[in-house]
């Protein structure tokens, strides 16, 4: 009985003269590890608005909303930090690898409403020249065109977009939401959404 107690006495004395084991949190900021999975942020300059993050998110914390407002078609991407489970799937599956990244922020406490825990970015969209609906953000078209290189000749919409962006084709002003449902042979040489592209190929 006595010998084991002596052994533990050593630990007691050591504990008595060593500083507290717990961290000094509110007074001293906590430094998470390098690979800590914290609050995710969209980075507007790198994000192309492809919505890959929203599709893989297990908690459905990323909301995608395409809307036409004041003559401009916009895609709104919102990450809700109150729903987010910090799994890092969005970062792992990001098209550009830098569009959405997890930070090391662990402190999500807020004095405001729970719904305010979010970040929204907007991306201006390419408009379908047939149905006037938003197709994809300009940034994504530009990214894909650059990535494909000479292969853009395989896709009429992409090629046209590319030629316009380098000033080799005329830019057309299309009003979002305006419908011109005429499908003839020349329709195929327009920037189209996938649904109209199929119609155009079928009917022309």
């Amino acid at each position: 009985m006595r010998r084991p107690k002596l052994r533990e006495l050593k630990e007691v004395i050591r504990a008595l003269f060593s500083p507290a084991y717990t961290s000094d949190f509110p007074r001293k900021a906590h430094q998470p590890y390098e690979r800590f999975r914290g609050r995710p942020y969209f980075h507007e300059e790198d994000c192309v608005g492809c919505t890959a993050c929203a599709q893989v998110c297990p908690a459905k914390a990323i909301e995608v909303d395409d809307e036409i407002k004041g003559g401009v078609a916009k895609r709104k991407l919102t990450v809700h930090w109150d729903i987010c489970i910090f799994c890092g799937q969005c970062e792992a599956n990001c098209l550009t690898a830098k569009g959405i990244m997890l930070s090391r922020e662990f402190d999500l406490a807020t004095t405001e409403e729970r719904g305010d825990l979010k970040q929204t970015i907007e991306k201006e969209c390419v408009i379908c020249e047939c149905c006037g609906e938003p197709v994809v953000p300009y940034d994504q078209y530009a990214w894909v065109a650059k990535k494909l290189g000479p292969l853009v000749f395989s896709n009429a919409s992409l090629l046209l977009f590319y030629l316009r962006s380098i000033g080799l084709a005329l830019k057309e002003k299309i009003n979002p939401g305006s419908k011109t449902a005429v499908f003839n042979r020349s329709t195929r040489l327009k920037v189209l959404c996938p649904a109209c592209r199929r119609q155009a190929v079928l009917k022309s």
Partner: peptide, 12 residues
């Protein structure tokens, strides 16, 4: 765990 996986629990 936090160092290797990025979280104390729910290692992903």
């Amino acid at each position: 765990f936090e160092m290797v996986t990025g979280n104390r629990n729910n290692y992903a």
